[in-house]
Nucleic acid binder design. Structure first.
Lengths: 108, 108
DNA sequence: TGTATATATGACTATATGGTTATTAAGTCT
DNA sequence: AGACTTAATAACCATATAGTCATATATACA
């Protein structure tokens, strides 16, 4: 039975995780990490985000468990914790495509 | 190749969908709809949300395509648009369980 | 030690949004 | 028509947060 109701506390935790993915900048960062590990400077370059801003986004992603990090000298290297992120995004993208398709049919 | 980079516009849309799920109250509403179609009054009773508040949450969920609605007389009945929501939530819950497990090991 | 570099953090502003109360709109009933 | 019910909307407040600037921390290097 894949359907036990979640407690308010669990709902809060799940919502928190979704919130980490509910920001275009953070999704962009995750995309930048898809090819592999990158340090903050490389992430800035790839995404065009400001340094402080990106640092905060990375903290959120790390707190939510989507990225892991590793210090090397003065740099911090971030990488995806796993590929759940893309499973989630692909599901969402699938929905968007389906929507687009429906909209197209409406206008046809 | 399941890995085309998303455009900023697409990132925005995906983030918007995640944002719809990034609120405990909305997840609670979705849970309440898991058993089947319900009108707003029933949703209020099940979730304990205020009427205006729930109405706004329902609008967000509808705009994001997670629920569909049907008017019957003076009532509005809402239902889940599909079960993607639960695929998404189960993925997140799986992550939480894994985290909990890791934490437990740390304290062991 | 002093300087440069990379990242994190704190302070601040502007905006978005969750929750509440009051009101509106639409349907039902007598 | 008038009273009642259900849901949506508007106005409002309080809080959260994305973005930016300035500063702190930490490592490397001369």
């Amino acid at each position: 039975m894949p359907g036990k109701a979640l407690t308010p506390d669990q709902l809060l935790h799940v919502a928190e995780r979704f919130k980490a993915l509910a920001e275009p900048s953070r999704l962009d960062i995750l995309q930048a990490l898809k090819a592999g590990e990158r340090n903050v400077g490389e992430i800035l370059e790839k995404t065009g985000l400001g340094q402080a801003n990106a640092s905060k986004h990375l903290r959120v992603l790390h707190a939510a468990g989507f990225v892991e990090r590793r210090k090397e000298g003065v740099s911090t290297y971030y990488r995806l914790a796993d590929n759940d992120v893309f499973k989630l995004c692909e599901l969402m993208c699938g929905r968007l495509e389906k929507e687009a398709h429906t909209r197209k049919k409406l206008f046809a």
